[in-house]
Lab assay of single mutants.
Amino acid sequence: KEEVSSHTSPETGIWVTLGSEVFDVTEFVDLHPGGPSKLMLAAGGPLEPFWALYAVHNQSHVRELLAQYKIGEL
């Protein structure tokens, strides 16, 4: 988790977690339908608090999209 928390910018890579999985979403930030700034709120940390607020994320196609960016496990 400490390593994930240091990845919060395009220069270091933008990493997020979901459960025990780690994702590098650097290439996706500008494609995020809610805008880059919304995704950047989660940079370096867990997606769960944000996904709890926005139910649109609880769809299979969203998880499939995220899976493409998986880089490891906590």
Rank of each mutant, 00 (worst) to 15 (best):
K1E: 07
K1S: 03
E2R: 10
E2H: 11
E2P: 08
E3V: 14
E3Q: 13
V4L: 13
V4S: 07
S5K: 15
S5F: 14
S6E: 15
S6L: 15
S6F: 15
S6W: 12
S6K: 15
H7C: 03
T8R: 14
T8V: 15
S9R: 14
S9P: 07
P10S: 11
P10V: 11
P10G: 14
E11N: 13
E11G: 14
E11K: 11
T12E: 13
T12G: 15
T12R: 13
T12C: 07
T12H: 12
G13F: 01
W15Q: 08
W15N: 07
V16N: 06
V16P: 01
T17N: 07
T17Q: 10
L18R: 14
L18D: 10
L18C: 12
L18G: 06
G19Y: 07
V22Q: 06
F23Q: 06
F23T: 00
D24S: 04
D24E: 04
V25M: 06
V25C: 03
T26G: 07
T26Q: 03
E27C: 08
E27D: 13
E27L: 11
F28L: 01
F28V: 04
V29L: 12
V29M: 10
D30F: 08
D30Y: 09
L31M: 10
L31V: 14
H32A: 00
H32I: 05
H32F: 01
P33I: 01
P33G: 04
P33H: 02
G34K: 06
G34E: 02
G35I: 07
G35D: 05
G35S: 05
P36S: 09
P36H: 02
S37T: 15
K38H: 03
K38D: 01
M40R: 09
L41Y: 04
L41W: 01
A42I: 00
A43Y: 02
A43G: 04
A43C: 02
A43K: 08
G44Q: 07
G44F: 01
G45R: 13
G45W: 02
L47F: 04
L47T: 01
E48A: 11
E48F: 00
E48N: 02
P49H: 11
P49C: 06
P49Y: 09
F50A: 07
F50I: 03
W51N: 00
W51C: 03
W51T: 01
W51Y: 06
A52K: 11
A52M: 09
A52V: 03
A52L: 06
L53E: 15
L53W: 04
L53I: 14
L53A: 14
A55F: 08
A55V: 08
A55K: 15
V56T: 08
V56N: 07
V56M: 08
V56D: 03
V56P: 04
V56Y: 06
V56K: 09
V56H: 13
H57R: 01
H57D: 03
H57G: 09
N58C: 09
N58L: 11
Q59F: 01
S60K: 14
S60H: 11
H61F: 08
H61Y: 10
H61K: 10
R63H: 13
E64M: 09
E64Y: 05
E64I: 04
E64L: 10
L65M: 11
L66G: 02
L66N: 05
A67P: 03
Q68K: 14
Q68I: 05
Q68A: 10
Q68R: 13
Q68T: 14
Y69K: 07
Y69G: 07
Y69C: 12
K70N: 07
K70S: 05
I71K: 07
I71H: 04
I71E: 01
G72V: 02
G72P: 09
L74T: 12
